[in-house]
Amino acid sequence: MFEKYPKEQRYTLAMLQDLQKEYGYIPREKLLELSQYLDIPLSKLYSIATFYKALSLTPKGKNTIKVCDGTACHIRSSKSLLDEIENTLGIKPGETTKDGKFSLEIVNCLGSCAIAPVMVINDKYYGKMTSSKVREILKEYGGADDE
């Protein structure tokens, strides 16, 4: 997988992103492998992996819920949407449900401000969201733990 790029430090981020795409996160063994392949200290790769939010060192859930907290969505009450998801699934942003079904993230501006507030599950956009719509939509993906 690493062979796609020249063996240079400047492709570190690109390689890490490919790992992220392939595994849904960056497994420890792979980080070590990359460190040896590029001859870059593990600590530096670890620093990069924890700095950039596109990269994750812990596995994500089967479905990733992204709630937009861009300014337009924020003033159209993205917080109450987020609260409802948190209450329904029992997780906070950055966490994954115990059954591995859902991961929750806050993102900053998806560029769909006209349909604010916006929630994206995997790659599907849900616009003009209200907290009352949350449970029904989550059911499409298997619902919360207790359902």
Partner: peptide
């Protein structure tokens, strides 16, 4: 040695 680094931001 580079045993330590800054983590997060």
């Amino acid at each position: 040695t580079s045993a330590i680094s800054t983590v997060n931001r």
